[in-house]
Design a protein around this nucleic acid. Structure first.
Lengths: 356, 356
DNA sequence: GTTCACGACTAACACGTGTTATCTTCCATG
DNA sequence: CATGGAAGATAACACGTGTTAGTCGTGAAC
């Protein structure tokens, strides 16, 4: 149960500690006789020898560890996209021989990035959902320390992975207008400054104007990260807007769960009364009621390529592209359908039915 | 941008490296003059000095790092309970000054526990959803290395955190029978050997027999971890069982999402035709259609106390209890309701309507 | 017989830290 | 003045590893 060191292996194999190290690291600079090599390997396996991490880190100056930093702890708990991403990141890191340390940016004033880097805890950093204007992160990116962003902070020097959001929203709005929708609401998520969320609002507007639809600020509401917050925001939207929307685009699938819930609670049906579109195509989206029309993108592939790029940067090798943008495609399920009647007509009808 | 060592601080402050270390670690064994102390602190802050992790680990023999091991990678991606737990574990660890390394047991033959321990990567291990019969884990537990289980492997020496499942199922079945339900199905999750899942099946049976209900193996189906797998299992259940259940208990809320979806797809209503009960009371469960009747337990508190216990063990301090069992309570929402008609009558009616 | 080359191995250093035993200085006490 | 003692600082070791410069034979070439 005592920890076994390279010295133990050396003495049991009757060689020096240096020899053990050379054999186990497969060094070619110095030649070792086949007999010695096999003997060392045998003893190492027999003693279950595993090089001490601290010793190796110290002498090599690298940790073989990647840091995953999430910009809000609650993302870990309630966001299905993050969960999926995280699993793929961990799996890929492990495949490539890296361990993973996970941390988040809290509101407790801990300077996460600097600490992780300065204490030499990680070789590289993967930042999930970075915020534009995060001074600490900006400093790290500019310092040249290996960082890959899942998201963006709009810095020319960043290495980041995004998706083709513009195309996605064009497809969504195309699909909806094709079904006759003209009043299309949007439920955003997270605080301002999250590139993915900001982009989505922007391209929502762009897509509307491309179709000649007017942008109505009353049709855009903001939620946090949870389904529940999406539900609350949607309830507000449905109560407040003078002319109810006939379609709602959710910033992501988790928010869409809340949207579906709020719509149902209002007594309206999906898609008969209101069409709902999600974003991310989480595994769960086929199990929603009704199954969700949503934007698909390859989250696992995105995670894997981000880790791959990060490892390249850690090793000082050149990376093919700095800003990656992965494709998206709209998956049409059952939460979207044709407009049955104009929203205006329904509003009138609604008032009539209430008078009875 | 170069890394700053204690030597840099020492030379700039005009003292020896030893003095720097003594000041920064607040050692009381050796007295340091107040002027020297403040000067060192000042310079350290100015240079943004952070003790190198590897150096410290090496000399101290501890890593100030906890390892979180999940027994199946997919748990990270699709299980809402795990996500919630994970966030709380990371938060609590960070509060107490520990970093967190995350890994999983894959099917690639890597002996995760031993590796993490032997290479000295972690001071303690938190194992989420351990499997009974995992020989590696058993060996670790018996070795005395600090381990805390979220779950159980039924080993007398384990330190683990469970919940009062028996009471929970008594409450569920009490609630359902009170509504007139007699044919109550159960959708389990995960592979055999997960204590939490096995316990639930066991206490499902116990609760049934307490109420004088007969256990029907045809009413128990097995899913994996995802909502989709829950959906598939439920569809099978609804198609195959000769006499359809009037209520379905899902092994957890994630599975319940799939159950709701499957029931809806069959054209049945919840709770009019079938009542559904979940387990875990995830944040999302209020946003399901309909809002889910489910078993609440304090996941965050469970995570925090597990981490606290683990840290006590790491520091060699005695822990109050080895096997913790936290309370549960049934939250009644809208997915459960009275039986409208007997299932047998409906089955007959169903055949009639098909003949038309 | 000397030189050279080469294979096989090892002594020794470096990495950055925490801590203990030791050293210096200075002052008080006999 | 000698002695003791304490405060204040540091030299030196240990932690476990990777790697380079160097040692030691041994056989071949001239």
């Amino acid at each position: 149960m005592k920890k076994v060191t390279s010295y133990d292996v050396a003495s049991k194999a009757g060689v020096s500690r240096a020899t053990v190290s050379l054999v186990l690291n497969g060094s070619t600079a110095v030649s070792i006789s086949p007999e010695t090599r096999s003997r060392v390997l045998e003893v190492a396996k027999e003693l279950n020898y595993q090089p001490n991490r601290a010793g190796r880190m110290l002498v090599r100056g690298r940790t073989e560890t990647l840091g995953i930093v999430v910009t809000d702890p609650v993302l870990l708990a309630v966001d299905g996209f993050i969960a999926l991403l995280l699993q793929a990141v961990i799996a890929k890191s492990r495949e490539d021989g890296y361990r993973v340390m996970i941390d988040y940016i809290g509101n407790d004033g801990q300077k996460t990035y600097r600490d992780l880097i300065n204490e030499g805890a990680v070789d590289g950093l993967l930042v999930i959902s970075p915020r534009v204007g995060d001074a600490d992160l900006l400093a790290v990116v500019e310092s040249g320390f290996p960082v890959v962003l899942i998201g963006s902070i709009n810095h020319p020097g960043e290495v980041s992975s995004m998706i083709q959001t513009e195309n996605a929203f064009a497809e969504i709005v195309d699909h909806l207008t094709g079904l006759g929708h003209e009043r299309i609401a949007y439920v955003s998520f997270g605080p301002a400054g999250i590139a993915a969320a900001d982009q989505r609002i922007e391209y929502y507007r762009t897509a509307l104007s491309t179709k000649g639809l007017e942008y109505d600020p009353a049709l855009v509401v903001h939620a946090a990260y949870s389904a529940r917050s999406g539900k609350i925001a949607t309830s507000r939207l449905l109560q407040e807007s003078d002319l109810a929307p006939t379609a709602i685009i959710a910033g992501n699938d988790t928010i869409a769960i809340g949207v579906l819930s709020a719509v149902a609670e209002t007594g309206l049906g999906v898609p008969e009364d209101i069409s709902v579109v999600g974003f991310d195509d989480l595994p769960i989206s086929t199990c929603l009621l009704p199954p969700l029309t949503t934007v698909h993108h390859d989250i696992v592939q995105r995670a894997r390529s981000a880790v791959e790029t990060l490892i390249l940067r850690v090793r000082g090798q050149p990376t093919a592209t700095r800003q990656l943008e992965l494709p998206t495609s709209l998956i049409i399920r059952e939460s979207t359908g044709p407009v049955r009647e104009s929203a205006y007509q329904r509003a009138e009808q609604d008032q009539l039915s209430r008078k009875r």
